[in-house]
Nucleic acid binder design. Structure first.
Lengths: 157, 157
DNA sequence: CGCAAATAGAACTAATCCAGTACTGATTAG
DNA sequence: CTAATCAGTACTGGATTAGTTCTATTTGCG
Protein backbone atom coordinates (compact mmCIF):
# COMPACT_ATOMS: atom_id res chain seq x y z
CA UNK A 1 0.00 0.00 0.00
CA UNK A 2 0.93 3.55 -0.14
CA UNK A 3 1.73 4.62 3.30
CA UNK A 4 1.71 7.78 5.24
CA UNK A 5 2.77 7.94 8.83
CA UNK A 6 0.48 7.90 11.76
CA UNK A 7 1.48 11.47 12.40
CA UNK A 8 -0.32 12.55 9.29
CA UNK A 9 -3.26 10.40 10.22
CA UNK A 10 -3.51 12.01 13.64
CA UNK A 11 -2.82 15.36 12.07
CA UNK A 12 -5.94 15.15 9.99
CA UNK A 13 -7.96 14.11 13.00
CA UNK A 14 -6.70 17.07 14.98
CA UNK A 15 -7.26 19.50 12.18
CA UNK A 16 -10.84 18.42 11.76
CA UNK A 17 -11.24 18.87 15.50
CA UNK A 18 -10.00 22.41 15.20
CA UNK A 19 -12.12 23.06 12.16
CA UNK A 20 -15.17 22.28 14.24
CA UNK A 21 -14.09 24.70 16.94
CA UNK A 22 -14.41 27.58 14.50
CA UNK A 23 -11.78 30.03 15.55
CA UNK A 24 -11.80 29.34 19.26
CA UNK A 25 -8.41 28.14 20.42
CA UNK A 26 -8.31 24.66 21.88
CA UNK A 27 -5.57 23.22 24.00
CA UNK A 28 -3.55 20.19 23.04
CA UNK A 29 -5.00 18.39 26.03
CA UNK A 30 -8.57 19.07 24.99
CA UNK A 31 -7.93 17.85 21.47
CA UNK A 32 -6.13 14.76 22.71
CA UNK A 33 -9.06 13.88 24.86
CA UNK A 34 -11.61 14.54 22.18
CA UNK A 35 -9.84 12.27 19.73
CA UNK A 36 -8.57 9.80 22.32
CA UNK A 37 -5.00 10.24 21.21
CA UNK A 38 -1.87 10.17 23.37
CA UNK A 39 -1.19 13.68 24.61
CA UNK A 40 2.57 13.89 24.02
CA UNK A 41 2.03 12.81 20.45
CA UNK A 42 -0.66 15.40 19.98
CA UNK A 43 1.60 18.10 21.31
CA UNK A 44 4.30 17.12 18.91
CA UNK A 45 2.01 17.14 15.92
CA UNK A 46 0.40 20.45 16.75
CA UNK A 47 3.79 22.02 17.09
CA UNK A 48 4.74 20.80 13.66
CA UNK A 49 1.52 22.08 12.14
CA UNK A 50 2.16 25.43 13.76
CA UNK A 51 5.69 25.60 12.44
CA UNK A 52 4.28 24.89 9.02
CA UNK A 53 1.98 27.85 9.28
CA UNK A 54 -1.27 25.94 9.31
CA UNK A 55 -2.08 26.76 12.91
CA UNK A 56 -1.72 29.73 15.21
CA UNK A 57 -0.66 29.04 18.74
CA UNK A 58 -1.29 31.00 21.87
CA UNK A 59 0.93 30.27 24.81
CA UNK A 60 0.20 30.56 28.45
CA UNK A 61 -2.90 29.90 30.47
CA UNK A 62 -6.07 29.83 28.38
CA UNK A 63 -3.87 29.36 25.36
CA UNK A 64 -4.24 26.83 22.63
CA UNK A 65 -4.27 26.29 18.92
CA UNK A 66 -6.52 27.55 16.18
CA UNK A 67 -6.58 27.35 12.40
CA UNK A 68 -4.43 29.91 10.67
CA UNK A 69 -6.92 30.19 7.83
CA UNK A 70 -10.37 28.98 6.91
CA UNK A 71 -10.86 25.25 6.64
CA UNK A 72 -11.83 25.60 3.04
CA UNK A 73 -8.38 26.94 2.26
CA UNK A 74 -6.44 24.13 3.85
CA UNK A 75 -5.95 21.03 1.78
CA UNK A 76 -5.10 17.47 2.66
CA UNK A 77 -1.87 18.06 0.76
CA UNK A 78 -1.04 20.95 3.10
CA UNK A 79 -1.53 18.86 6.18
CA UNK A 80 0.28 15.80 4.98
CA UNK A 81 3.04 17.89 3.48
CA UNK A 82 3.50 19.76 6.73
CA UNK A 83 3.90 16.59 8.71
CA UNK A 84 5.84 14.48 6.31
CA UNK A 85 7.87 16.92 4.33
CA UNK A 86 7.40 17.69 0.69
CA UNK A 87 5.24 15.26 -1.12
CA UNK A 88 7.49 12.86 -2.88
CA UNK A 89 7.28 9.18 -3.25
CA UNK A 90 10.78 7.89 -3.68
CA UNK A 91 14.22 9.01 -2.78
CA UNK A 92 15.01 9.20 -6.40
CA UNK A 93 12.35 11.75 -7.07
CA UNK A 94 12.89 13.95 -4.08
CA UNK A 95 16.62 14.10 -3.70
CA UNK A 96 19.15 15.91 -5.71
CA UNK A 97 19.32 13.71 -8.66
CA UNK A 98 22.99 14.25 -9.20
CA UNK A 99 23.89 11.64 -6.70
CA UNK A 100 21.73 8.91 -8.11
CA UNK A 101 24.01 6.13 -9.16
CA UNK A 102 21.45 4.65 -11.48
CA UNK A 103 20.61 7.81 -13.24
CA UNK A 104 21.86 6.67 -16.59
CA UNK A 105 20.24 3.29 -16.59
CA UNK A 106 16.97 3.79 -14.87
CA UNK A 107 15.37 6.31 -17.15
CA UNK A 108 12.86 6.75 -14.44
CA UNK A 109 13.77 10.24 -13.73
CA UNK A 110 10.74 11.28 -15.64
CA UNK A 111 7.99 9.24 -14.20
CA UNK A 112 8.08 9.47 -10.48
CA UNK A 113 7.55 13.19 -10.73
CA UNK A 114 4.58 12.45 -12.89
CA UNK A 115 3.15 10.10 -10.32
CA UNK A 116 3.89 12.53 -7.54
CA UNK A 117 2.20 15.26 -9.46
CA UNK A 118 -0.90 13.15 -9.91
CA UNK A 119 -1.09 12.32 -6.25
CA UNK A 120 -0.39 15.84 -5.17
CA UNK A 121 -3.18 17.17 -7.32
CA UNK A 122 -5.52 14.61 -5.88
CA UNK A 123 -4.68 15.66 -2.35
CA UNK A 124 -4.88 19.31 -3.17
CA UNK A 125 -8.42 18.82 -4.31
CA UNK A 126 -9.52 17.74 -0.85
CA UNK A 127 -10.04 20.55 1.63
CA UNK A 128 -10.15 20.35 5.38
CA UNK A 129 -13.68 21.52 5.02
CA UNK A 130 -14.50 18.43 3.01
CA UNK A 131 -12.81 16.27 5.56
CA UNK A 132 -14.78 17.78 8.39
CA UNK A 133 -18.14 16.75 7.06
CA UNK A 134 -19.13 14.12 9.57
CA UNK A 135 -20.56 11.55 7.24
CA UNK A 136 -19.75 11.73 3.59
CA UNK A 137 -21.16 9.07 1.34
CA UNK A 138 -18.82 6.37 2.41
CA UNK A 139 -17.55 3.42 0.48
CA UNK A 140 -16.20 2.19 3.73
CA UNK A 141 -13.81 -0.48 2.75
CA UNK A 142 -12.43 0.91 -0.38
CA UNK A 143 -11.37 -1.85 -2.67
CA UNK A 144 -9.66 -0.89 -5.85
CA UNK A 145 -11.69 -2.38 -8.62
CA UNK A 146 -8.68 -4.11 -10.05
CA UNK A 147 -9.96 -4.31 -13.58
CA UNK A 148 -7.68 -7.06 -14.59
CA UNK A 149 -7.61 -9.92 -12.22
CA UNK A 150 -4.91 -8.53 -10.04
CA UNK A 151 -4.75 -10.71 -7.01
CA UNK A 152 -6.37 -9.02 -4.11
CA UNK A 153 -4.68 -9.47 -0.79
CA UNK A 154 -6.93 -9.18 2.17
CA UNK A 155 -4.59 -7.42 4.44
CA UNK A 156 -2.71 -4.18 4.14
CA UNK A 157 1.03 -4.18 3.99
CA UNK B 1 6.00 12.39 2.26
CA UNK B 2 3.86 9.69 0.99
CA UNK B 3 5.92 6.64 0.86
CA UNK B 4 6.01 3.51 -1.13
CA UNK B 5 8.57 0.83 -0.65
CA UNK B 6 11.61 0.35 -2.75
CA UNK B 7 10.02 -2.81 -4.03
CA UNK B 8 7.41 -0.81 -5.84
CA UNK B 9 10.05 1.56 -7.07
CA UNK B 10 12.09 -1.27 -8.52
CA UNK B 11 8.91 -2.89 -9.74
CA UNK B 12 8.16 0.03 -11.98
CA UNK B 13 11.69 0.03 -13.30
CA UNK B 14 11.46 -3.63 -14.15
CA UNK B 15 8.08 -3.31 -15.75
CA UNK B 16 9.24 -0.54 -18.00
CA UNK B 17 12.18 -2.74 -18.93
CA UNK B 18 9.80 -5.48 -19.93
CA UNK B 19 7.56 -3.08 -21.76
CA UNK B 20 10.48 -2.18 -23.98
CA UNK B 21 11.16 -5.84 -24.72
CA UNK B 22 7.78 -6.11 -26.42
CA UNK B 23 6.71 -9.64 -25.78
CA UNK B 24 10.09 -11.31 -25.75
CA UNK B 25 10.73 -12.94 -22.40
CA UNK B 26 13.66 -11.59 -20.46
CA UNK B 27 15.39 -13.28 -17.58
CA UNK B 28 15.64 -11.83 -14.12
CA UNK B 29 19.39 -11.62 -14.54
CA UNK B 30 19.13 -9.65 -17.75
CA UNK B 31 16.72 -7.18 -16.21
CA UNK B 32 18.81 -6.83 -13.08
CA UNK B 33 21.82 -5.98 -15.14
CA UNK B 34 19.97 -3.56 -17.38
CA UNK B 35 18.67 -1.63 -14.40
CA UNK B 36 21.67 -2.15 -12.17
CA UNK B 37 19.58 -3.66 -9.42
CA UNK B 38 20.55 -6.46 -7.03
CA UNK B 39 19.60 -9.74 -8.61
CA UNK B 40 18.00 -11.49 -5.63
CA UNK B 41 15.76 -8.53 -5.13
CA UNK B 42 14.79 -8.52 -8.76
CA UNK B 43 13.90 -12.18 -8.58
CA UNK B 44 11.70 -11.59 -5.59
CA UNK B 45 9.86 -8.73 -7.22
CA UNK B 46 9.30 -10.48 -10.51
CA UNK B 47 7.88 -13.45 -8.66
CA UNK B 48 5.44 -11.20 -6.88
CA UNK B 49 4.40 -9.51 -10.10
CA UNK B 50 3.86 -12.90 -11.66
CA UNK B 51 1.74 -14.06 -8.76
CA UNK B 52 -0.33 -10.93 -9.17
CA UNK B 53 -1.01 -11.79 -12.78
CA UNK B 54 0.88 -8.90 -14.34
CA UNK B 55 3.61 -11.08 -15.80
CA UNK B 56 3.87 -14.46 -17.42
CA UNK B 57 6.82 -16.58 -16.50
CA UNK B 58 8.56 -19.27 -18.45
CA UNK B 59 10.75 -21.63 -16.51
CA UNK B 60 13.80 -23.46 -17.62
CA UNK B 61 16.55 -22.61 -20.01
CA UNK B 62 15.70 -19.73 -22.34
CA UNK B 63 12.94 -18.85 -19.93
CA UNK B 64 12.11 -15.50 -18.46
CA UNK B 65 9.33 -13.04 -17.82
CA UNK B 66 7.06 -11.13 -20.14
CA UNK B 67 4.09 -8.82 -19.73
CA UNK B 68 0.80 -10.59 -19.32
CA UNK B 69 -1.01 -7.88 -21.23
CA UNK B 70 -0.22 -4.77 -23.26
CA UNK B 71 1.60 -1.99 -21.49
CA UNK B 72 -1.28 0.34 -22.17
CA UNK B 73 -3.51 -1.86 -20.04
CA UNK B 74 -1.30 -1.95 -17.00
CA UNK B 75 -1.54 0.98 -14.64
CA UNK B 76 0.78 2.30 -11.97
CA UNK B 77 -1.93 1.33 -9.53
CA UNK B 78 -1.73 -2.27 -10.71
CA UNK B 79 1.99 -2.45 -10.19
CA UNK B 80 2.08 -0.73 -6.86
CA UNK B 81 -0.95 -2.64 -5.68
CA UNK B 82 0.62 -5.93 -6.66
CA UNK B 83 3.75 -5.24 -4.68
CA UNK B 84 2.32 -3.51 -1.68
CA UNK B 85 -1.09 -4.97 -1.28
CA UNK B 86 -4.34 -3.16 -1.77
CA UNK B 87 -4.01 0.55 -1.97
CA UNK B 88 -4.83 1.92 1.43
CA UNK B 89 -3.23 4.62 3.37
CA UNK B 90 -3.92 3.97 7.01
CA UNK B 91 -4.66 0.98 9.12
CA UNK B 92 -7.92 2.54 9.94
CA UNK B 93 -9.04 2.61 6.37
CA UNK B 94 -7.85 -0.79 5.39
CA UNK B 95 -8.66 -2.98 8.31
CA UNK B 96 -11.93 -4.29 9.50
CA UNK B 97 -13.25 -1.24 11.14
CA UNK B 98 -14.94 -3.12 13.90
CA UNK B 99 -11.81 -3.35 15.91
CA UNK B 100 -10.96 0.31 15.77
CA UNK B 101 -10.98 1.58 19.31
CA UNK B 102 -11.45 5.14 18.26
CA UNK B 103 -14.31 4.53 15.94
CA UNK B 104 -16.76 6.61 17.89
CA UNK B 105 -14.54 9.58 18.45
CA UNK B 106 -12.54 9.91 15.35
CA UNK B 107 -15.27 10.39 12.77
CA UNK B 108 -12.58 9.82 10.26
CA UNK B 109 -14.09 6.71 8.97
CA UNK B 110 -15.34 8.68 6.06
CA UNK B 111 -12.39 10.56 4.82
CA UNK B 112 -9.49 8.24 4.45
CA UNK B 113 -11.46 6.26 1.93
CA UNK B 114 -12.02 9.47 0.08
CA UNK B 115 -8.33 10.26 0.05
CA UNK B 116 -7.51 6.72 -0.94
CA UNK B 117 -9.99 6.94 -3.74
CA UNK B 118 -8.41 10.12 -5.01
CA UNK B 119 -4.95 8.66 -4.99
CA UNK B 120 -6.05 5.44 -6.51
CA UNK B 121 -7.71 7.23 -9.38
CA UNK B 122 -4.59 9.23 -9.94
CA UNK B 123 -2.48 6.11 -10.14
CA UNK B 124 -4.96 4.34 -12.33
CA UNK B 125 -4.71 7.13 -14.81
CA UNK B 126 -1.06 6.41 -15.45
CA UNK B 127 -0.32 3.46 -17.69
CA UNK B 128 2.88 1.52 -18.00
CA UNK B 129 2.93 2.79 -21.52
CA UNK B 130 3.07 6.35 -20.23
CA UNK B 131 5.82 5.39 -17.84
CA UNK B 132 7.90 3.82 -20.57
CA UNK B 133 8.24 6.98 -22.61
CA UNK B 134 11.87 7.79 -22.12
CA UNK B 135 11.63 11.51 -21.65
CA UNK B 136 8.32 13.02 -20.76
CA UNK B 137 8.20 16.74 -20.14
CA UNK B 138 9.83 16.62 -16.80
CA UNK B 139 9.37 18.96 -13.91
CA UNK B 140 12.28 17.17 -12.39
CA UNK B 141 12.25 18.23 -8.85
CA UNK B 142 8.63 18.47 -8.17
CA UNK B 143 7.99 20.93 -5.43
CA UNK B 144 4.47 21.34 -4.23
CA UNK B 145 3.70 24.98 -4.66
CA UNK B 146 2.72 25.33 -1.07
CA UNK B 147 0.35 28.18 -1.59
CA UNK B 148 0.44 29.38 1.93
CA UNK B 149 3.86 29.66 3.35
CA UNK B 150 4.06 26.06 4.37
CA UNK B 151 7.56 25.47 5.48
CA UNK B 152 9.46 23.56 2.88
CA UNK B 153 11.83 20.98 4.20
CA UNK B 154 14.69 20.24 1.93
CA UNK B 155 14.90 16.59 2.54
CA UNK B 156 12.36 13.83 2.18
CA UNK B 157 11.09 12.02 5.17
C1' DC C 1 19.21 -38.98 -20.47
C1' DG C 2 21.32 -35.57 -17.90
C1' DC C 3 23.14 -31.08 -17.29
C1' DA C 4 22.56 -26.28 -17.01
C1' DA C 5 19.57 -22.37 -17.04
C1' DA C 6 15.92 -20.54 -15.17
C1' DT C 7 11.89 -19.59 -12.02
C1' DA C 8 9.33 -20.73 -7.15
C1' DG C 9 9.21 -20.17 -2.52
C1' DA C 10 10.35 -19.69 2.08
C1' DA C 11 13.32 -18.43 5.92
C1' DC C 12 16.60 -15.42 7.81
C1' DT C 13 19.32 -11.05 9.13
C1' DA C 14 20.89 -6.38 9.55
C1' DA C 15 19.70 -1.86 9.24
C1' DT C 16 16.47 1.67 9.10
C1' DC C 17 12.51 4.13 10.50
C1' DC C 18 8.45 5.16 13.28
C1' DA C 19 5.56 5.83 17.41
C1' DG C 20 5.63 7.27 21.55
C1' DT C 21 7.94 9.13 25.84
C1' DA C 22 10.54 12.22 28.80
C1' DC C 23 12.51 16.25 30.01
C1' DT C 24 13.75 21.07 30.05
C1' DG C 25 12.75 25.71 28.72
C1' DA C 26 9.82 29.77 27.40
C1' DT C 27 5.58 32.47 27.61
C1' DT C 28 1.49 34.46 29.49
C1' DA C 29 -3.14 34.97 31.97
C1' DG C 30 -4.92 35.88 36.28
C1' DC D 1 4.20 34.73 41.15
C1' DT D 2 2.36 30.76 39.83
C1' DA D 3 -0.06 27.58 37.18
C1' DA D 4 -1.25 26.50 32.54
C1' DT D 5 0.28 26.00 28.19
C1' DC D 6 3.25 25.85 24.13
C1' DA D 7 8.44 24.94 22.18
C1' DG D 8 12.14 22.02 21.34
C1' DT D 9 15.20 18.21 21.69
C1' DA D 10 16.84 13.73 22.78
C1' DC D 11 15.96 9.00 23.57
C1' DT D 12 14.10 4.13 23.24
C1' DG D 13 11.57 -0.11 21.98
C1' DG D 14 9.41 -2.15 18.35
C1' DA D 15 8.05 -2.74 13.73
C1' DT D 16 9.14 -2.73 8.98
C1' DT D 17 12.08 -2.91 5.07
C1' DA D 18 15.90 -4.22 2.13
C1' DG D 19 18.43 -7.56 0.88
C1' DT D 20 20.45 -12.39 1.18
C1' DT D 21 20.58 -17.36 1.14
C1' DC D 22 19.13 -21.86 0.39
C1' DT D 23 16.45 -25.45 -1.54
C1' DA D 24 13.13 -27.20 -4.83
C1' DT D 25 11.12 -27.38 -9.37
C1' DT D 26 10.75 -26.88 -14.29
C1' DT D 27 12.47 -27.14 -18.98
C1' DG D 28 15.39 -26.51 -23.15
C1' DC D 29 19.12 -28.65 -25.39
C1' DG D 30 23.10 -31.45 -26.51
Amino acid sequence: MIRITREADYGILLMTGLAQAEGQPRSAAALAQQRRLPLPMVGKILKALTRAGLLNSQRGAQGGYSLARPASEISAADIIGALEGPLAITECSSERHDGCARQDHCEVSGHWPRINQAIYSALQGISLDDLSQPNPPRPLHFHPLHPTGVHQLDRPI
